[in-house]
Structures are given as C-alpha cells and as structure tokens.
C-alpha cells in the first residue's frame, strides 16, 4: 500500500512538472513569435511583385501581359490572391 502511495506521489509530481513545463515552453514560443517573428515580418515583408511573378509561373492565365490594367490594380489583386492562398492552403 505504501508503494502505491509512493507511486501516486510520483505521478502527481510528474503531472505538475509536466504541465508547468509544457505551459512554460509553449509560452516562450508565444513570446518568440510576438517578438522575433513579428519584427522579422515588419523588416522583411513579402514583396508583392515577387509573389505575383510566382503566380505568373504557376498559372498560364496569368502569363498574359497585364494589358490595360493599372499596376495598382494588379498589385491589389495579387495581394488578395496571395492572402486567399495563405488562408485556404493550410488544410492540405
């Protein structure tokens, strides 16, 4: 019976240590995302031109010359497309 009590105490310690560690570890990750990654995102934003040229490569319909669309319209559309893709491409 003493042995069981001992095991319960060990399991309790393990539970406490484990949960605290998991929370601390993932909280540190939150800090990492909010500081390092957020700064990087501001410093190196995804260039819109690059993403639209990537889109050009992928789909043939985009490879046509832009014709009479103004560059601002093209930039806005490609930005929206990129955002749509980043949001809808995650459940693959």
């Amino acid at each position: 019976m003493d042995n069981m009590q001992q095991q319960f105490i060990e399991a309790g310690t393990l539970m406490l240590a484990g949960m605290v560690f998991v929370f601390v570890f993932l909280s540190m990750l939150i800090i990492f995302i909010n500081t390092v990654l957020a700064k990087l995102a501001i410093k190196f934003p995804d260039p819109i031109v690059a993403s639209s040229s990537r889109a050009n490569k992928k789909s043939k319909s985009h490879s046509k010359p832009h014709g009479d669309f103004s560059p601002a319209v093209v930039a806005a559309i490609s930005g929206a497309v990129k955002r749509y893709r980043s949001q809808h491409g995650q459940d693959k």
């Binding site: 995102a41 995804d46 949001q87």
Partner: peptide
C-alpha cells in the same frame, strides 16, 4: 487571421 510572411514561416521551425 493576419497574413503571415514567408520569413516568419522559415524562422519558426528553427526557433
């Protein structure tokens, strides 16, 4: 959700 840049996604696994 906000959009996430490529550099964030690259640095995340390394972090």
């Amino acid at each position: 959700l906000r959009s996430v840049t490529k550099i964030e996604k690259i640095i995340f696994p390394l972090g």
